[in-house]
Every structure is written in structure tokens, then in C-alpha cells.
Simulated scan of single mutants.
Amino acid sequence: MRVPLNPSRNSAPHVLMSADAVGGVWPYSLDLAAGLVRRGLAVTVAILGPGPSETRIRAAEAATGARIIATGLPLDWTAETPEAVLDAARVFAALAGAIGADLVHLHSPALALADFPVPVAAVCHSCVATWWDAVENGPLPPDLAWRHDLTMRGCRAADALLAPTRAHALATARVCGLAQPPLVVRNGRGLAGLPPRAAVPHAFTAGRLWDQAKNAAALDRLAGRLSVPIRAAGSIEGPNGARVETRHLQMLGRLDDSGIADELAGRPVFVSLARYEPFGLAVLEAAAAGCALVLSDIPSFRELWDGAAAFVDAEDEAEAAEAVQGLLDDPTRRETAGKAASDRAARYGVDAMTEGVLHILRGLLAAAPARLGGAAA
């Protein structure tokens, strides 16, 4: 782990952020880090779990202005024991002291279970209990129960708790028994995109396809009903050993940001039949590119996209096929739907997200000797 030098106490206020480079937390972390740096803060992003290549890390540093380090510490959802997560939390707390952080911003509430020397904000991006409620039945199995216990305790230990949608905030409060739901700060993306180009009409989806919540099996059945392919970007095998098999989806593998942008430039119909999605950055990226949206009718999608997307039952591929094919067969309707999605996506930008987080950080540090309020004003 390459640790940055302890900055001068006269330098800009310093935020230590944790990050997961496997899924949507990674672009969220980079966008937020860049937004905070633009507002005069110093930011160190510490990656837990599988890390990007050194080349990608250096490129991310250049793009964001933040320091980025790969810690080698386990993620809470891939760690083998509770002790491994608690050890990671203790190492992270020590790192906060070593680099002279003024505040810690955690991507996982479980990491708040350590003696941090500064205030801690934690984001409920997702959790195993709300995920289980959406995709399974019955009590949590032991391997997930201890992870949920750490999350519950971490939610109570954090000085501030955030969630990306009201729907997920309420779900988190329910499963964790919280007196108050997390504060809602919606995610945002910095999306330049590519100019639209003429393309053969098709459908597109993106995400961690191996995750049962993404409902790749239903997407695959849907693909078998359409007159055009559904192109699917994302890994079919996860770091936890989960794997999905498909017959009809046109698999593209994992694509980087430029690869996703190139796919979206053709303005495909974007489809998500997710059973569980606390926010859905892939949907936001597609909407910002002007893609018409066909989404599963789940609370978070309704909250974000009601009036700007077509909603279908996540398990009814016939209904989904009718919605997607109808857009594919009617270019004018597809263009109108894409414009509605693009207009809605404009609400969920990086500046709005950064200002929302910054407001909470200012509140945490209002009584502290740190300099956040003045530097960010």
C-alpha cells in the first residue's frame, strides 16, 4: 500500500475516501473525488478489494486530482470472516491518522466499526439484507447474517449516514432497525458521452451480470423474444464465485468508460430488469446519452425515472418484449422517450451530488478545528 505523505496542517482540508473498484462505487468515488478537489479539498481514495491496474490508477489520479492507493484490504462482501472486516476497519482508521485526514467518507458502513480519529460519513450504496429481501426468501444464511450484523452496527457508529435514493434509505432503515433513515444524496455522473451516430436499432444493458439481482436470466429470455439483439456489457463471473450462463444475450464482456460511451452513442433502447437496484448508474449513463429506457418497476427506479421511462414487471419477459419492441419499431416514439430520459438525467449530475455530500461534511466538521467550511465556500 503506497501511503501519501502527511500533509501540512495549513494545507487544504483532507478527506479520506474508501472505494470498491468492482462495480458502481468506483465511478461514484472518482466523480465525487473530482468534485471535492474542484472545491478546494485534498482527497485520498483508498481502494479495498480487487484493484485496477497501476496504469488505470495513475490515469484516475490525473483525471480527478486525488491521490489513489490500492490497500489490498478485503471488501466487506467478499471477506471470509467478521474479523477480516474489523481488521480492515482498524487499518483504515490508522491510515486516516497517518495521512492527516480531517474526515473519512466510507463506501461501506461496516468499515465505521473502528476508532477513527476524525468524523466519519458512510454511504449505504447497498447491503446484503436489502439485497436478500429483493432476490431471495426466508432468513439470511449465516454467511450473510454476520455481514448484516456488521452493517447494522456500522450504521449506528457512523457520524452521518447517506443513501442514494429515498427508497433505499427507507429499506436500509427497516432492515437495520434505524430510528432515522439515512440522508438522501442522489448519485451523479460526469457524462460527456459521444455524439449520436446512426446505428441499427438494438437494445443494450450493462452491469454486474453475475449478480442475481441484475436478473440476467430474465434479460436472456427477453432477448430470445426480440427481433434484434440485446447487447450486454458486464462480467458474467463475480469475485465471490457467482456466475451466470446465457443463451440469447450478445455478450460484450466488461467495457471501460469509452467502450460504454461508444455503445450508448448508437442510442439503443436501454433495458434493466433488475430486482434490486439502490440507484443504478448504468441507467443514468444511458439516459444521459439519450437512450429510451425500459426498466423494472421497483421503488428506486420509480423514484428516479417515473415519467421518463417505460416500466415493466421484472419477471414478465413478454411484457418487457412488448415495451422494447414497440420502441424499436417506432423511431419517433423512441426519440421522444430518449429526450425525456436525457432531460431527467440532467437532474443527477456530479455538481448536485458533490454539493449534497459537501453539505453533510460541513455539518460534521462545523464544531471541529478543520478548515472545510472556509475552503469550500
Results as ranks from 00 to 15, higher is better:
150 L>Y: 02
255 L>D: 12
156 R>E: 15
192 A>Q: 15
249 L>G: 08
161 L>D: 09
190 G>C: 12
194 L>F: 10
149 D>Q: 14
211 D>Q: 08
165 T>R: 01
165 T>F: 00
181 P>E: 10
245 E>M: 09
144 L>V: 05
171 A>R: 03
199 A>L: 08
207 G>S: 09
239 P>S: 12
139 P>G: 07
139 P>H: 04
237 E>I: 11
171 A>N: 04
207 G>A: 10
161 L>I: 11
226 L>I: 11
147 R>G: 03
159 D>F: 02
228 V>Y: 02
131 W>M: 02
151 T>L: 05
159 D>T: 03
259 G>A: 12
254 R>P: 15
255 L>Q: 11
207 G>I: 00
149 D>M: 00
250 Q>A: 15
170 L>W: 01
198 A>W: 10
213 A>K: 03
231 R>S: 08
201 P>D: 07
230 I>E: 06
186 R>I: 00
175 V>W: 01
211 D>L: 02
259 G>I: 00
191 L>Q: 06
155 C>M: 13
209 L>E: 04
187 N>Q: 14
174 R>K: 14
188 G>N: 09
201 P>F: 10
148 H>P: 07
143 D>L: 04
145 A>H: 08
139 P>E: 12
161 L>H: 04
235 S>Y: 10
154 G>A: 11
244 V>Q: 08
202 H>L: 05
152 M>K: 11
214 K>Q: 09
193 G>K: 11
221 R>S: 13
247 R>D: 13
187 N>F: 04
211 D>E: 15
151 T>Y: 12
136 E>F: 00
240 N>F: 02
188 G>K: 00
179 A>D: 15
233 A>R: 02
235 S>Q: 14
134 A>F: 03
213 A>S: 15
257 D>K: 01
220 D>G: 08
244 V>L: 07
224 G>V: 00
227 S>L: 05
165 T>K: 00
228 V>K: 00
182 P>W: 02
208 R>T: 09
140 L>S: 08
136 E>Y: 04
163 A>S: 14
199 A>I: 06
242 A>H: 11
253 G>P: 11
204 F>L: 05
254 R>Y: 08
179 A>F: 01
178 L>S: 06
136 E>W: 01
193 G>C: 13
226 L>F: 12
157 A>I: 10
251 M>R: 15
154 G>E: 03
166 R>G: 11
158 A>K: 01
239 P>D: 14
216 A>M: 06
253 G>T: 15
212 Q>T: 13
172 T>A: 10
210 W>Y: 14
220 D>Y: 04
147 R>Q: 06
239 P>V: 07
145 A>K: 07
246 T>P: 05
169 A>M: 07
162 L>H: 02
227 S>H: 12
138 G>F: 10
196 P>H: 13
210 W>A: 13
249 L>M: 14
145 A>N: 10
252 L>Q: 14
205 T>G: 04
258 S>G: 13
182 P>T: 10
134 A>C: 13
256 D>C: 07
147 R>H: 06
195 P>T: 14
177 G>F: 01
217 A>Y: 01
201 P>T: 11
252 L>K: 04
212 Q>L: 09
218 A>W: 06
200 V>N: 12
215 N>M: 06
191 L>R: 06
192 A>N: 12
180 Q>N: 07
169 A>I: 00
232 A>Y: 12
199 A>E: 14
138 G>I: 14
228 V>W: 04
177 G>Y: 03
206 A>K: 01
256 D>H: 09
133 D>V: 00
247 R>L: 09
144 L>E: 10
142 P>T: 12
204 F>I: 02
246 T>N: 06
206 A>V: 10
